[in-house]
Write a protein that binds this DNA or RNA. Structure first.
Length: 153
DNA sequence: GCCAACGTTGGC
DNA sequence: GCCAACGTTGGC
């Protein structure tokens, strides 16, 4: 499948991922997003890496799932922002995946631009009202349309 | 099970 | 900083 994953670039950007090569995607604390990780994400799935809550929200690059879902260790770390006292080790509530760097877009595909596309991106979740989910599937058509936007500027 | 209050996300 | 749109929590 294809995915979009949001990250705030001042926390973790596509450039950070480029340096690290791969990174555990921890801290997902929304059941719908968790279910996507658990049920549908597979190694080698491609990911649009989206920068949110920043000056120019945009799809900033491409990533890939390099490890399928496993218990998110941060839920058991008392000092972590993501600590969950209600989660038990024998029945972990939250999951993580590992994400690998593929490439950084030379020119980010901005949210502002995506909004001008219209029909070809009908139903693309990022553009829909009230969208807050940090991880969601992208149809192959939408995914490839966005890659084409990167090439045409 | 309802629903008000509260917290979070994220664009602007 | 503001606000819309959700999701979660907790009293009843």
């Amino acid at each position: 499948m294809h995915w979009l994953m949001k990250s705030e670039p001042h926390e973790f950007s596509i450039d950070d991922l480029a340096r690290r090569k791969r990174e555990p995607w921890t801290g997902v604390r929304n059941y719908q997003a968790r279910n996507h990780l658990r049920d549908d994400m597979q190694v080698d799935d491609e990911v649009l890496f989206y920068h949110s809550s920043c000056e120019e929200p945009a799809v900033a690059g491409l990533a890939r799932i390099v490890r399928a879902a496993y218990p998110d260790p941060t839920q058991f770390e008392r000092k972590s922002d993501y600590y969950d006292a209600g989660s038990r080790k024998d029945a972990p509530r939250w999951l993580a995946v590992d994400v690998g760097f593929v490439r950084r877009f030379a020119v980010p595909v901005t949210l502002a631009r995506l909004k001008t596309i219209g029909a070809p991106l009908e139903g693309f979740r990022l553009l829909m009202r009230g969208n807050r989910l940090s991880v969601f599937p992208v149809s192959p058509d939408h995914f490839h349309h966005i890659l084409a936007l990167e090439r045409t500027t």
